[in-house]
Design a protein around this nucleic acid. Sequence first.
DNA 1: CACGCTATATATAAGGA
DNA 2: TTCCTTATATATAGCGT
Lengths: 199, 199
Amino acid sequence: MGRRKVEIKRIENKSSRQVTFCKRRNGLMEKARQLSVLCESSVATVIVSATGKLYSSSSGESMAKILKRYEMQHNDELQTLDIAEKTENHLSHEELLEIIQCKLEEAKSNNISIEALISLEEQFKTALDVTRARKTELMMDLVKSLEEKEKLLKEQNQVLADQLTKMVKKRLLGREDERVMSLENYAGNIPPETLPLLK
Amino acid sequence: MGRRKVEIKRIENKSSRQVTFCKRRNGLMEKARQLSVLCESSVATVIVSATGKLYSSSSGESMAKILKRYEMQHNDELQTLDIAEKTENHLSHEELLEIIQCKLEEAKSNNISIEALISLEEQFKTALDVTRARKTELMMDLVKSLEEKEKLLKEQNQVLADQLTKMVKKRLLGREDERVMSLENYAGNIPPETLPLLK
DNA sequence: CACGCTATATATAAGGA
DNA sequence: TTCCTTATATATAGCGT
């Protein structure tokens, strides 16, 4: 959709590749936004340039929420693959279906999506090698994400602990002042004490 | 780009909204692929329909890799600072609790998934290749231990947050007493942000 | 829902600032 | 990089199957 048709293959000219990247990147994100608005859905887009630069956008729900959804499905897949792996070599097709049915109730109350289990039949046909490799990959991802979460939580803990410490300190030291300051603060419309505490 | 121009706002007609969703969803993913190929970049797209159905695609690097990149850049700042920021900007009791509850639910659903996974593993432990089973087991242990660590950290977080909240509440309640004593002086001048804190 | 078929609305390739 | 402009290539709205 330009002066001439371009084939969808790597653009050799570096500078025009850069320009195209910029244009189409913006175009893609705008399209994503439109889809989200028109159809009340959520769209997350993450783009990594050739040089590793990151561009991302989300509309509808927040990026975090959308990615969390994706990860949940991801975990479903892990569980499904786990079943598949353990089943492929030892159970017949019929037995597998029976198992799936047995699992449906459990799946409903748990976090496994029905779709994931239903697709088990297809997974069954998947080569065992692929299944195993994928499962391992997913588990590694899970582990990694948990490790990141852990780091995150530790940092949060630190933040909270710091705040608490500062507040206790302030309480112990600033009781007298507070009465006076409180009045002045409100008269001058200065935001409440929480602000200085958290700096 | 159709028979007539459409405004970018929710399509009211359910059926045409559905059709548009399907068409534009495919269009978006194709655009993503093209961008990736033309400019040797990586693009990940996650779409959540109004009914919660998930669609995702990636080109260039794998989805996991792309999302990991995103998380690496954003997780720490985005989520940690999100909480810190909310806390700093006049933390309200309700908001804080909401955040913590959200985190706990996240943990719960994670735990459930993992538990399900483990139980599946037990149910299907028909003599498998010993090496593979052992490998999986070790991975699960890793995951589980990380989950436990996460849970502990979250509990710790909650305790800290509760303490912080209570302390702020006390401080403000104490201040309220003072305020009552000389309410007339600045009754109309109370910053609105403080009100939710007193609930 | 997915597909096919136009008529149009849009996106975007080139080229220059 | 971003912004324009213009000529074209594409995407897609509306309507059937």
